[in-house]
Simulated assay, not measured.
Amino acid sequence: MDQPPPRSPSVADVALKAGVSKATAARVLGGYGTVSDRVRDAVTAAARALDYRPNELARSMTTGRSGTIGVVVGDIENPFFSLAVRGITDVARQAGFTVILINSGEDVASEKAAVRTLLAKRVDGLIVSPSKESDVEHLQEAARSGRPLALLDRGSEALDVDTVIADDRYAAEGVTRRLLSLGHRRIAYLTACDTPDHLFRTPADINTGSVRRRIEGFLGVCRQEGLKDMERWVHVGAVTPDDTRRIVTAMLQAGERPTAIIASDSVIGLEVFKASRTIGLAIPSDLSLVSFHDADWTSVTSPPVTVVRQPVYQLGETAARLLVERLNGEGAKSRRVILQTEVVERASVAEAPA
């Protein structure tokens, strides 16, 4: 006959071994109340000897806290989000919280399901990078539930919550002015954001706020310099490497090809770099390239790539810090933090070819 699985040690077992009451052991193991150092040491030693593991559900019912923070990002394979999540987890761990991470794939339906799952798991707060800023009712409901919410990298006018973003518009303006000063007039901007017919017409088509601000900055500077109809140089739908390769190949093989490309993230930038090589165009003599996000690969290619270095780790770190402050009862009004970017000049940008 099969033996039943061994029973996990309980608070009562720890109390018995430490020679204290169950209530005292519970205070030490739960981190609340006041006990002497001698008692705390005895209970801690007993818990270690018995390999005691706390019952998180029971503890959350007692304290009203689960000790967890839910995080929803668009694409965890993108180095941008990986680094931002590192910033979040470092701050959360120092504050005594565990992070539960869910990837939305930049799909709003998946994001809604992720938020529902995290709320059902009774997370203490949420950090979300919204995939579609015009569809945030689920985030409004989460905020109304009483759980603190912070937005990462992408804000929303419809949500009065703590928000941490980078100065994307300013960064795009600076990059565009630099390219124009070198004689470039056929400048393409390439993003993974998409439209139903895969054509860009106006920045209002872009639901991701960080990208929309970059495109607005790009187009605004072009208009100031008297360039017309630059909307046709904005390309959307670079969702996968294959999509990006197809779009870039078509652009670079067109009769009027761009002399410079601004990649909206480093994943796209890498595909632009590879596609130009495949076609036989040299960077930067035939094509200048600038990429948002200072990914590791950008500094080791030949030539190394000029990038907009975003404060990615600090974005995650700041969002987590604001959320922890909320959980600790600090802060009354919602806060909007804008972090500065930096253009790192390397060797992928040159004067426009004659």
Score class of each variant (00 low, 15 high):
residue 159 L to Y: 03
residue 18 A to C: 04
residue 77 E to V: 08
residue 226 G to K: 13
residue 63 T to A: 07
residue 65 R to F: 01
residue 252 L to S: 09
residue 78 N to M: 06
residue 91 V to A: 14
residue 345 E to H: 10
residue 214 R to C: 12
residue 171 A to N: 06
residue 179 L to N: 04
residue 17 K to D: 11
residue 301 T to W: 06
residue 306 T to K: 12
residue 199 L to I: 11
residue 172 A to F: 00
residue 213 R to S: 14
residue 167 D to R: 11
residue 128 V to S: 03
residue 152 L to Q: 10
residue 247 I to A: 01
residue 117 T to W: 01
residue 88 I to D: 05
residue 12 A to Q: 14
residue 109 A to C: 03
residue 163 T to V: 05
residue 45 A to S: 14
residue 128 V to A: 01
residue 302 S to T: 12
residue 40 R to E: 11
residue 300 V to S: 08
residue 168 D to M: 01
residue 260 A to Y: 09
residue 179 L to V: 04
residue 129 S to V: 07
residue 98 T to Q: 15
residue 291 S to N: 05
residue 78 N to S: 13
residue 271 E to D: 14
residue 67 G to R: 04
residue 320 A to Y: 00
residue 44 T to F: 02
residue 217 G to F: 02
residue 339 L to D: 03
residue 38 R to L: 11
residue 110 S to L: 10
residue 257 R to C: 10
residue 95 A to G: 12
residue 192 A to E: 00
residue 1 M to P: 11
residue 22 K to V: 14
residue 180 L to Y: 06
residue 175 V to N: 07
residue 331 G to I: 00
residue 290 V to H: 04
residue 234 V to K: 01
residue 297 W to P: 02
residue 138 H to M: 01
residue 175 V to W: 02
residue 153 D to N: 15
residue 54 P to T: 12
residue 214 R to P: 13
residue 84 A to D: 01
residue 31 G to N: 12
residue 63 T to K: 09
